[in-house]
Design a protein around this nucleic acid. Structure first.
Lengths: 238, 238
DNA sequence: GAGTGGTCTAGACCACAAT
DNA sequence: TTGTGGTCTAGACCACTCC
């Protein structure tokens, strides 16, 4: 009987999954090894093929195994663990801590894509972009400078938003369904303007998040988020 | 017929998923709305219940919908997007860039848990910990100081490893199956010893990753990873 | 009690891989 | 040609929710 009897109430597909996970964890089946076919598991557990199939299909979705039609099912390569930083709307994040959020709008303008932006957005030169610069405060302490360029084709009403009431993030999430994003996190010394907006000392570094978001197969927005190094960190768990 | 005919070859369960995703994307079905029952989808698409069930079950696994037994299937709350930073073994990462990796071992010692460590590890005071301090190089440029404390109960052979040949990461992955981790990313000025090991200038900041890993329901390891701000960043996409 | 999802069966046909 | 996975059917019984 496969493995020590699992709880009675456990569904059959789950018992099969547990069996396979156990074998892999115990080292009986290693990376690249073929594991029993659906047919074999049917006999071993006395279930129909659909049930064995569901177990293996779910393990494949979880990247525990790899399935090759016509060939078999194999133990997948060990996955690298991933740390997850949730991208939150900063206003929600601050309020979730029970603090007051407010923001100051420093710039809100329409610009023609210059060379640098053209590269980042992958747009024809001369396309219209919107540019905003906003400082976010938590209990009247500045915690983020949000320097953002927005593709006008994706979010045409950007300039009409009231960014004292909502954040660009909130508007963009509504206007441009997020398709994907890429980002980079780095530590760097802020230029004097940024340092001043964040009321930082001369020798304090910033934690910088650069993020590019995609919507409708175009770059929707490029944001550079500056945070005072000593007061802000990204954290998470998995 | 539900929605514009999808490609002929598309499996029925996928066509149903696409239909539901389309309705949600178009705003026809909003957060919390009930969506058609399995029965209804069976009729709409002319399929058996197992097929409609698979479509909805997979959407539930993807957190697009929430299913409540006895009640119905509902559009899930919008998820916050998550950025993913892969935790890689730094040696692999460097080699993947086609560069040479080497490391220098500065410390490798057995210590008794002092107050600070006791808190982080949740261990009884006086427990045994191992401590290592290693500098990692990419093409002879220092790119990371790895300051690590390891729970001796989880990885008893830590001191016997040859860290010129493998990294603590590699050893720990083998010795202590990873259960979970929490981390924090911040920007800060390095203390002079760290700055010297990374050959950094006086006013350059570090990108610091603090990570706690769990194994067998205990804290396995606490690592503080210092990187030169200008030369190193975390990046990813989703 | 009626409606809904959770699970399962015993077949079936197909596409693809290895031989 | 044989074995494998990919998909699907037309039923079934059960647990749970809501009325």
């Amino acid at each position: 009987m496969a493995r020590a009897a699992t709880a009675q109430g456990t569904p059959a597909f789950q018992r099969i999954k547990d069996h396979v996970l156990g074998k892999i964890h115990d080292g009986d089946w290693r990376e690249g090894d073929a594991i029993p076919t659906e047919e074999a598991l049917c006999k071993l557990f006395g279930v129909s093929r659909m049930t064995a199939n569901r177990a293996l299909r779910e393990l494949a979705a979880e990247q525990v195994v790899v399935r090759v039609q016509g060939s078999g099912t194999f133990v997948a390569q060990e996955r690298y663990q991933a740390t997850v930083v949730a991208i939150k709307n900063i206003a929600d994040e601050v309020r979730a801590r029970g603090h007051a959020h407010r923001s100051e709008l420093h710039k809100l303008e329409r610009v023609r894509a210059a060379d640098q932006q053209v590269v980042r957005f992958g747009l024809p030169p001369g396309s219209v972009l919107f540019h905003s610069l906003i400082v976010h405060f938590e209990n009247d302490q500045p915690i983020q400078v949000e320097d953002r360029w927005v593709n006008a084709a994706v979010a045409p009403d950007y300039l009409a938003q009231d960014f004292s009431k909502s954040t660009p993030n909130e508007y963009l999430m509504r206007a441009a369904p997020l398709q994907g994003a890429s980002y980079e996190i780095e530590a760097s010394m802020p230029p004097p303007e940024i340092a001043e907006m964040l009321r930082m000392g001369e020798r304090e570094p910033c934690l910088v998040l650069r993020r590019k978001t995609m919507s409708r197969n175009q770059v929707a927005s490029v944001a550079v988020l500056w945070h005072p190094g000593g007061k802000y960190s990204f954290s998470g768990a998995f």
